[in-house]
Amino acid sequence: MKKRKLFYTVFISSILTLVFSVQAFATTTTSNHTALTQQTIDNTLEKAKSTTSSSETLKKLNEALANKKVVNDPKVSATKSLTSQTSSLTAISGGTYPTRKGVILVTDDKYSGIIPLGHGAIVYSASEVVEALNTGVVIGKNNWNTTRNSCAAGTVTSTTVDQDAAAAEWCKSKVGTPYNYDYYNMSTRSKFYCSQLVWASFKDNYGIDLNTDSYDISTFGYTIASAIHPTELLTNDKVVVTYRNNWDVN
Score class of each variant (00 low, 15 high):
K2Y: 04
R4W: 08
R4H: 07
F7N: 04
T9Y: 09
L16D: 07
T17H: 04
L18F: 09
V19M: 14
S21N: 10
Q23I: 11
Q23W: 07
A26H: 11
A26M: 12
T27Q: 15
T29H: 14
T29E: 13
T30V: 05
S31Q: 14
T37P: 00
T37G: 00
Q39R: 12
K47F: 01
T52K: 06
T57V: 14
T57C: 00
L58H: 05
K59R: 14
K60L: 02
L61A: 09
A64Y: 03
A66P: 01
K68H: 04
K69Y: 00
V70M: 06
K75I: 08
K75N: 13
A78H: 11
T79E: 12
T79A: 14
T79D: 05
S81M: 04
L82N: 09
Q85F: 00
Q85E: 14
T86D: 11
A91D: 07
T99Y: 04
V106L: 02
I114D: 07
I114R: 01
P116S: 11
A121W: 00
V123E: 08
V123L: 06
A126Y: 02
A126N: 14
S127A: 09
S127N: 14
S127E: 13
E131D: 14
G136E: 09
V138W: 01
V138K: 13
I139E: 11
G140C: 04
K141D: 15
K141F: 00
N142L: 09
N142M: 06
N143R: 09
W144S: 02
N145A: 13
N145C: 03
V156M: 10
S158W: 01
T160H: 11
D162S: 15
Q163S: 03
D164F: 00
A167N: 10
A168M: 09
A168F: 05
C171D: 10
K172L: 11
V175G: 10
Y181P: 01
Y181H: 12
Y183W: 09
N185W: 06
S187I: 04
S187T: 12
T188R: 08
T188G: 02
R189H: 01
S190V: 08
Y193I: 05
V198H: 07
V198C: 04
W199Q: 10
S201C: 08
D204W: 05
Y206K: 05
T212Q: 07
T212G: 00
Y215K: 12
D216Q: 09
T219C: 04
T219Y: 10
T223V: 15
I224D: 07
I224A: 08
I224E: 07
I228N: 01
I228K: 02
H229P: 00
H229E: 09
T231D: 10
L233R: 12
N236F: 04
N236I: 08
V239C: 03
V241H: 03
T242S: 06
N245T: 09
W247Q: 03
D248C: 02
D248Y: 10
V249Y: 02
N250M: 01
